[in-house]
Amino acid sequence: MRHLLNITDLTVEEINELLALGNDILDHPEKYAHRLEGKKLATLFFEPSTRTRLSFEAAMYELGGHVIGFAGANSSSAAKGESVKDTIRTVACYADIIAMRHPLEGAPVAAAQVATVPIVNAGDGGHHHPTQTLADLMTLNREKGRLSNLKMGLCGDLKFGRTVHSLIGALSRYDNVEFILISPEELKVPSPILRELDEKGIPYREATSLEKEISNLDALYMTRVQRERFFNEEDYVRLKDTYILDAAKMALAKDDMIVMHPLPRVNEISTQVDDDPRACYFKQVNYGKIMRKALMLKLLEE
């Protein structure tokens, strides 16, 4: 039995297999419509995240399975003081696979210690969010046709943005990927991640101006500057508008550069950009559902 707690739990070969399966699901959804008939997914959202939960649930329904679960700590057993491990032991009696989101880092690791069914980490605090990374990888693979030979720009909150950290980790296993890390001084990529890039000899550059860098990029990953990551309102207000992608900046970018975003966005991508064919963030949402289907198939059919 396998879990997916961190994107690096999967080898490059396994990710490539999942991407191939994802492509087939996208092209022939009908082939997979009954593959998980009779199976139940439990979505345990100890902290609410409607879009991620809906993505998992839609994925399971499209495979012919069923969904049970809860959302929000108030409605859950956690509100009554039950431990993560006890909740998992209980739910494992009802479900064939569990997708869990928890505000505390490492909660899925604790869950996996006692789980008798596969655990999928649907986000644990600021730590990991591997199915988002699968969505990101499918987006690059479909829209750029490759995961190697990329000048990958990441912009915004690179300090707390867990999707950024996971994507760097996943892409740094492919050949000839260069990272251009565009952020304010206060929100730079944490040093342990940079140290790892140094150790592996992977090229990266830190920059502060999106305008100066955008013309070089093959793909641009925008992130939201989250209010809850800041200790005070002043810092948030000062930094949140620093890196806004608009039509003027898009005019400087390559014709085949793609724009990605884990969503939800606030105002870091102007709505002017939405109709630009290079904007891929809504396709990315669909790819996320497709990769969750591929993942559940793999974990349940192994």
Partner: peptide, 13 residues
């Protein structure tokens, strides 16, 4: 020592 770590609240871990 991470205050956001599951080990700070999960009993018996």
């Amino acid at each position: 020592k991470n205050p956001r770590c599951i080990t700070t609240v999960e009993p018996g871990i």
